[in-house]
Design a protein around this nucleic acid. Sequence first.
DNA 1: TCAATAATTGTAAATAATTTACAATTGCAA
DNA 2: TTGCAATTGTAAATTATTTACAATTATTGA
Lengths: 105, 105
Amino acid sequence: MSKSETSNDLSFDFDFLDKLVVGIGEVSQITGIPPRQIRYWEEKGIIKSLTEEEGKNRRYNYENIKRMLLIKELLDEGYTLDASAEKVKKRMEMIEETLNKLKNK
Amino acid sequence: MSKSETSNDLSFDFDFLDKLVVGIGEVSQITGIPPRQIRYWEEKGIIKSLTEEEGKNRRYNYENIKRMLLIKELLDEGYTLDASAEKVKKRMEMIEETLNKLKNK
DNA sequence: TCAATAATTGTAAATAATTTACAATTGCAA
DNA sequence: TTGCAATTGTAAATTATTTACAATTATTGA
């Protein structure tokens, strides 16, 4: 069975995560990070919205959300924003690797 | 390690799916179903938004989205909307069972 | 302590996206 | 061709988000 077909096993969920794109309000609900703070992080270049056009609503994917959650954790641990962002970059690579392994299985 | 802690294994993704809530625009992007059609299905009672207050924007969870995708498939196969919804109900129970097994592992 | 910088927060005005309601259209089977 | 299911169109009102400018709070080194 192809990865893109619907099924009740787990292969579908990875396709789902690939397609998943949400707005700032949803990200805020999911992560507990206020929209204002998300915009600030983006302004600083810590995260990037998928939206290309100016003035349109921001869109984030799973990787973005994951990144924000990790940064939030590190901030709580006492790291600065820049240090957190740096650490997360490395951590993201590990996660990405894990997901890719599972996706191509 | 607790299920709610962040990690680079998969247990996190289930927590993520639990928290995932998206608006109608995002659902439309993810599923390919036009917002107008999603509202129509809701009007008919086929799906239900999480929003309690009238006039506020609709919110959907993972189960809702999965349901819509399954209905869309069955419609393409030639089933009526009501028949699709009925079939999906049973299919959802199987999926729910599978997810619960994995969540509590 | 004081100044400087980092991080966050507040908010008004403009714009984007969604809602409801009423209506029209399309497809199909009896 | 009639009837019903399913979908689609759209205007006006409302909700949510954006940008821009500014203020506030926290931390750190002199």
